[in-house]
Design a protein around this nucleic acid. Structure first.
Lengths: 212, 212
DNA sequence: ACCTGAACACCGTTCAAGT
DNA sequence: ACCTGAACACCGTTCAAGT
């Protein structure tokens, strides 16, 4: 039976979720679909385009409008939804981040971030710039968060040499303890930094070009 | 005459600047040094480590302390210096960004961003989070800026089909005109967003955990 | 229309063996 | 100590030829 474009996409998502971005190669994908590598190029012109389609799948659902009428809540919700979408797939943040430069310009997600600004008094240009700044933050934070989480998964398997139900070790976290804690709270902190910055811009729009 | 570690590093920087990150392969580097690929593995255990050393070179000089006593100027100067360092090498932003997750935790640059916060009343934890948020922004913005600039270079060679000294075309920039303009000004806008957000945090530290 | 077979031009890394 | 030679196990992409 014939391979359809959707099958290729589903196969790619499956490899991504199970084995990660590094294992998402055209040859491995072909093998998992029981087909020769060249066959994939009938459905997608190249790997870049395939990954773009995967990114669109990861990001789909982000465009349902927020039901709040507060601009700060709209920004916050959008940011949290984007983060959640990235975290929902293995290496999701890294993949979207890597494709971002060439594709996010035409993305719906970007437009929604912009709209959340223009709807509440920001000029088009300032809303664009604020949207990008926020996107950079969300992507950067989430790439970092996800890679740390994956490192910890590996560490959890490598560590625990004595007993799995040993009492909690105290004193081993002096290393990076300040960066521990609920990632969502850490995410929210940077988000609030942005939102407060935008609030200042809305309060006194003419300060935009001053160096702080 | 023998190959030293420094020669390998210099060769890597030369390929990066002349041909870009995609051409910075171990085999190409070996060829440019007149040596077999395996020889590089005597000086560096793997490519990742080599790239890490290249990143350190790109980022060296970032740790000279700022002479200002204003925290906002310290943040701003640090951010501008980081951006300048990234822009000083072809694909510099992309390279540093790619290595960031695994290496910036131990970077001097990160520590300086943190210090710029703690020196002026931010708690250690908040300063850490603010530093990361700002780093994500600078990296994201600069990767974007640099990739756009490189696309334009290609476009400038592909375009201009009639005459190189033709009068300026009007009407062709409706496409993305809002995102044109001085990149430094655009960079400053997002930077000010951050700094104003931090200012709000300094003014009322207890609002940190509220959703804006 | 859709896929195979087979090649092209590459990668990073390892390692016995040379000097 | 430092490097060569040669291999191993991969990549993405193309394209004549098959069905």
């Amino acid at each position: 039976m014939q391979l359809r474009r959707g099958d290729v996409l589903d196969g790619a998502m499956a490899i991504l979720d199970e084995f990660g971005l590094a294992d998402l190669t055209m040859r491995r994908l072909a093998t998992s679909l029981g087909v020769q590598p060249g066959a994939l190029y009938w459905h997608f012109p190249n790997k870049q385009t395939l990954l773009g389609a995967v990114v669109d799948k990861i990001l789909e659902g982000l465009d349902t409008p927020s039901d709040t009428d507060r601009w700060d809540e709209a920004y916050s919700e959008l940011a949290h939804r984007l983060r959640a979408a990235l975290l929902a797939h293995r290496d999701g943040a890294e993949l979207v981040s890597a494709t971002f430069a060439s594709r996010m310009t035409s993305s719906k997600v970007r437009e929604h971030f912009v709209a959340a600004g223009t709807d509440y008094g920001l000029s088009r240009e300032h809303a664009e710039l604020a949207a990008y700044a926020l996107l950079y933050y969300v992507l950067g934070h989430t790439v970092d968060e996800q890679s740390r989480a994956q490192m910890e998964e590996l560490g959890a398997l490598t560590r625990a040499p004595i007993s799995p139900d040993s009492p909690e070790v105290i004193g081993g976290e002096s290393d990076e303890n300040l960066l521990a804690g609920d990632p969502t709270v850490r995410f929210q902190f940077g988000l609030d930094l942005f939102i407060d910055g935008i609030r200042a811009r809305l309060a006194s729009p003419h300060s935009a070009l001053h160096t702080s």
